[in-house]
Each structure stands twice: as structure tokens, then as C-alpha cells.
Amino acid sequence: MRGLIRKIKKSRLLGMSGSSFPVWLKWKKVKGSKAKIKYVVCNGAEGELKTQKDYYILKHYPKDVIFGIKLALETVGAKTGFLYLNKKYYRKLKPKLIKLTHHLPIELFEKPEGYLNGEETVICNIIETKAKEPRVKPPLPAEAGVFGKPTLINNLETFYWVSKIAKNQYNYERFYSIAGKVKQKGVYKLPFDFTIRDILTITGNRPWFDFFVQVGGGASGEILLPNELDRPITSLGSIIVYDKKTTNPMVLMRKWAKFFFKENCDLCATCREGTFRILEILQKEELLSQDKQTLADIFNLLEKASLCPYGRILPRPFKTAIAKLL
């Protein structure tokens, strides 16, 4: 479709994986490459705890997502697309998706288990059947992704919205996954500039008890207190509500720490040893100021020195929880 990138630019659509990178820039970069072979990857890995928006979209609007991928293939000049899916989603939706894609150059790809296997450079390695490890960036996938070719990788939801933009049906909305101690768990389509408080209120999920929320994913999302909810979500569209009285922050942090320790790829020293020591320190009943300092040092190192985004974002929940809940 001609002028699609211009339309996307005008829509100011941002990537829906949580990174909020301008979508048009990525598309332009891959389109601009003179390489003969290019790829498009639709990332439906969705590995964050208690977040199911991509599943919801794929289940209810598969045609739109696939139309989005098709548009991407045409626009950037790629001949092959991959629909890379979380194992569970793949198994549940495979028959339906095959019906919709069999006539298109779009291949369904089942993601091996593991949170990190949703990271874009790991995806490239997995498609190439290489070790499940992140790659050193640069080059970015847009320059050298799958099989070293320019590769457009966007979140599944991003493709959905591109299809809407193409049909002039984009209303500046996004999907929000709401979970935790709420009455109406689920996924909702709402304007992207709605504040967290608005979203909870409109969906009938406003807590009646003393609470806090985790926004941006059940593992890597940040902790926000009730007085911090008058802002829209710029990261992953996920809200989890916790009961402050019944939630032990140490137990909660231990759960994240176990998750990150288990899911990290072990490749760089910061993540491998950092997550191990975070978990070790959080096994204590209570954090002394010395422990907090050690954790702060490890968090700082992870944010600045890690090889891939996994390590750089994982301190976020811990830092906000320690500052706000302890």
C-alpha cells in the first residue's frame, strides 16, 4: 500500500512491546535497505507474567493481525514473514491461523519455552536454529536480523494497529490487560492516552481496598501507588492490582527474582551472577540497609552494563517495590 509509512508516521504509532519505539522509523529503515532478501517477524511471544493482551488480539482479530503482516511484507519488500508465537497460543490457535495464512508467505513459528525467547535478537537466533542467546547490538535486526538479512520485528499488537491505520480505522487506542485482585479481569481496548486510574474506573476494576499496581508486565513492570495513577501507560499495556494488606512485598519480589534467575540466558556476567545474587539477598526475612545498597549496586550494573534489554529492564520492579513498599 502506497504511503503507508507516511500514514503510520502521522498516526504517531509506537511499538507495543513496551519499548515504545516509533513504528514508522523501523519500517522505513527496513524498506530503505537495498538487500534482496528481507524478513518480517510478528512477535507474539508474550512471556510477561499475568499479561494476555496478544492472546486476546490473536483470538478475536486474527485477520487484522495477518493483514498487518501482509502489509508489512509488501511495504518493506520482504518475501517471507514469521508469525512467532508463545507455545500455548500456538497450540490453541494453530488450526485457525493455518486456514488464514496457508495462501500467504507467512510461516507459523512455535516459540520454545522461556521468557528471553521473546527478545528480538534471540528470536532471530531461534528462527535460524542457533543457540537461544541474545545477539550483541548493533547491528539491529532492521540491519541484520534473521539469517543476517534486514528484518522487521514488531509486537503482534503493532501489526493489528497498522492494519487499522491502513483502513483509516485507527482511533488512537491500545489494548490493556488487567489482572490481579480485580472484579473484571480481561483485556480491554481503550484510548492510549487514558490514565491508569481512568482505565481501572471505566472497566469497573477500581479497587475498594488499599492497593498498589504493577504496570508494564507482571515481571518487569514497575510498582505504582494509588497517588501515581494519573498518567497513561507508556510501557507494555498491562495492569496488575495487588492488595496492599495481604501482599508481602518480600514474597512478591522473591517471585520476580526466581523468574528472572530462571529465565535469564546466562550469557553475560551481569545477568547470570546478578540475578543469582538478587535472589540470594531476597531470601532474607528483611533487608538491611547494607543489603539495599548491594542490591542498588547490582541494579545499577544491570541497567547500564547488560548485554540485552532483559538485564537492563529487570531492576525496575525491584527498585520501585523497595522504594515504595518497604
Binding site: 556476567a269 551481569t270 551472577e273 546478578g274 545474587r277 549496586d297 547490582i298 545499577n300 550494573l301 547500564k304 552494563a305
Partner: peptide
């Protein structure tokens, strides 16, 4: 100063293995 601080923490982790 920041680089030195990061290296110190990194080395403490590396020495821990």
C-alpha cells in the same frame, strides 16, 4: 567515576564465581 563504580560491582560478581 561511574565506570569505576560499575566495574567494581561487576568484579565483585565475577569474583563470586
Amino acid at each position: 567515576v561511574e565506570i569505576r563504580k560499575l566495574r567494581k560491582t561487576n568484579l565483585e560478581l565475577l569474583f563470586s564465581q
